[in-house]
Structure formats: structure tokens, C-alpha cells
Design a protein around this nucleic acid. Structure first.
Lengths: 165, 165
DNA sequence: TATTGTTATACTCTATAACTATA
DNA sequence: TATAGTTATAGAGTATAACAATA
């Protein structure tokens, strides 16, 4: 039931010379994928952040603190997020064995089923989106996207080191 | 100041056979672009939805109703959105000349400056993201992204017609 | 003292429902 | 009656600040 809009970003003034269309195309594609995820999540009464929470918990039992780092959220935000998920029976809090201040957050069977369904639905929808592309183009797109993402990750790694000096 | 996370989506179980990596790569790229926009918006104390609002108003003076359709929001949500933007002096409401129930929403000079800055910042950041790609790859990426977006738009057009029958 | 986490508070964003004014 | 918009209300999601418990 999430209200989605496919309205693209404010059309960039399409600067002459540079990359005509690249910025717009990337922005629109991102919105499309993002909205698709929101829609799938909504079908399971989840938000994107809840899907991300459950996704992290699929193979980890982090503390609230670690969860905050993973999600880029303040600890108080994590408290609320986990509260709401726990209230729905999707996650559990367990006192840490090594630090009695800390909780370890784990996913329940119900939560796992839900996130698995959502992930499957998302995959299916993305497959539909790229249905028109021949295999070569899909591989190309995968590589280009991966290159941008990893380049950015590297850049951030380097930036951090630079800051640390 | 928007807290951003580059944490990718819950890694899809990488189904054998199909499109190994495509779903993940697209999801991560989308998050990256989306987070970039959120960050740029945040630098101007704007949210993504506020940027989209101002972006629409750059070349239109729609009614509240039309705005709701553009943004995919309920009219009550638009009321609040425009309220907050107007309170900051970014937009104006003017009673419609043809329908005294309706308002026409327009962007102020302040609002225009703000959205122009945000758009420029966003463009610059995206340029940085793709800085490592040769021209050929950029064009390829633009075409692939555009093809997916337009194919989806067409599909929705067809779906709508199908529903209407 | 420092860290982990919760709670109180505040604000944005969103929706539903009830309402007013105009068509 | 139907439509345009606002307001009241509720809830998710986010942050900051103050706090308790543990390290």
C-alpha cells in the first residue's frame, strides 16, 4: 500500500558537453529500483528500512550498536526500529553473554520467512524490469553497476585514510 | 546531515542460473544514487521529497491536486509538504483564477536558487561516481538505463489500458 | 570514566477520515 | 452531488539530549 511515484527527479538542466542524459538516466533508474523495492516491501507490510534490518539479520546477530553502524542510524533510531519489528514478532533481543549492557538482535522464523519472500519478490520484479535486455546487455549492465559501486567504496576507503592522516 | 548508509540490500541468495549479480548490482547502484541525492538534499536542509517538489515547480504551477498526482501522494500529504515549504519561503500558494477552490503552487526565487544548487551538486556527484568510466561505457550505461526505464513506462501504459478493459 | 542502550521530545512524512467551500 | 483543499489524528522513521546500567 506504499504510495509510489515514478515521477523522475527534477530533470537536470542537461548541461551541454558533459554527459547528456547520464545523470537523468541514472536518477530515473534508481528511483525505479527503489520504488520497486518499496512496493515489494509494502506488500508484506514492511518498509525499506525494515527489509534492510531483516536482511542484515539473515546471517548475523549483531548488537544494537553494530546494527546502527550497518544501517547508518543513531542508536535511538535503532531502538525504535527494533522495537517495532520485535512487537511484530520478526526479531528478538537477547542479552549478550559477554557484555550485560548489550543486546544481540536475531531474526525469528517469521521474520526470516517474510524477508525471504520479499527478496524473492524483489528479484522477480527486477528480472521483469530487465526482461527486454539480451544476455550480453545484462552482463554489461551488471559490470558497469558493480564498477561504479566498488569504485565508490574504494574512494571512500581512501578518503577515510586521507582524513585519518 | 542526513545519516546515510551505503549498506547494500540484503544480498539476494544469488539464484543459480539466472542473472548472477544483476539484482544485487542494480540494488546497490540504486542505493548509492539515492543516498547521494539524499546527502546533497540534506546539505541544503532539504529532503528528497522536497527536492522533487521544487523540481516539479521549476517549470510548472500545478494545483495541489495535480501535485499530488505528480508525486504520488494523498492530498493531505501534499498540504503538509507545501505548508512546510511555504513556511520556509520556498513556494507560494495562489488562488486559481478559474476555480476558487483551487490553489496554484509556484516556486519562489529562494526556492529556485535552492533547487538549482541541489541539482548542480547532484550532477557533480554523479559525475564523480562515473569518473572512472570511459566515454563509451558512460554512453552504454545511459542507454541501458534509459531502455529499462522506458520499457517499464511502456509496460505500465499497457497495463493501465489492460486494466481499463 | 566510557560505553550500551532506552526514554523523552521534536520534527518530517505519510495516510485516513471528517470537514468547508466551491463547482 | 462531486471536487479541491484543509484539519485532526495516528503512526513510522529519524535525531538530539538526558538518563540508567554496566564495563
Amino acid at each position: 500500500m506504499t504510495p509510489l511515484s515514478n515521477t523522475p527527479l527534477p530533470a537536470a538542466p542537461s548541461r551541454a558537453g558533459e554527459d547528456p542524459g547520464l545523470v537523468d538516466a541514472l536518477a530515473q533508474l534508481s528511483f525505479l529500483v527503489h520504488n520497486t523495492l518499496a512496493e515489494i516491501a509494502g506488500q508484506h507490510d514492511l518498509s525499506i528500512i525494515q527489509v534492510r534490518l531483516l536482511g542484515i539479520l539473515r546471517d548475523r546477530k549483531p548488537t544494537m550498536n553494530a546494527l546502527g553502524r550497518h544501517l547508518g542510524l543513531d542508536k535511538s533510531s535503532v531502538s525504535g526500529l527494533v522495537d517495532r519489528a520485535q512487537r511484530r514478532g520478526l526479531v528478538d533481543r537477547t542479552v549478550s553473554a559477554t557484555d550485560r549492557r548489550a543486546f544481540q538482535v536475531s531474526i525469528t522464523d517469521t521474520g526470516r520467512q517474510l524477508v525471504d519472500q520479499a527478496a524473492a519478490g524483489f528479484t522477480a520484479r527486477i528480472e521483469t524490469l530487465v526482461a527486454g535486455l539480451p544476455d550480453t546487455d545484462r552482463k554489461l549492465l551488471t559490470q558497469l553497476a558493480a564498477r561504479i559501486v566498488t569504485a565508490d567504496a574504494d574512494r571512500r576507503g581512501i578518503d577515510l585514510r586521507t582524513d585519518a592522516v
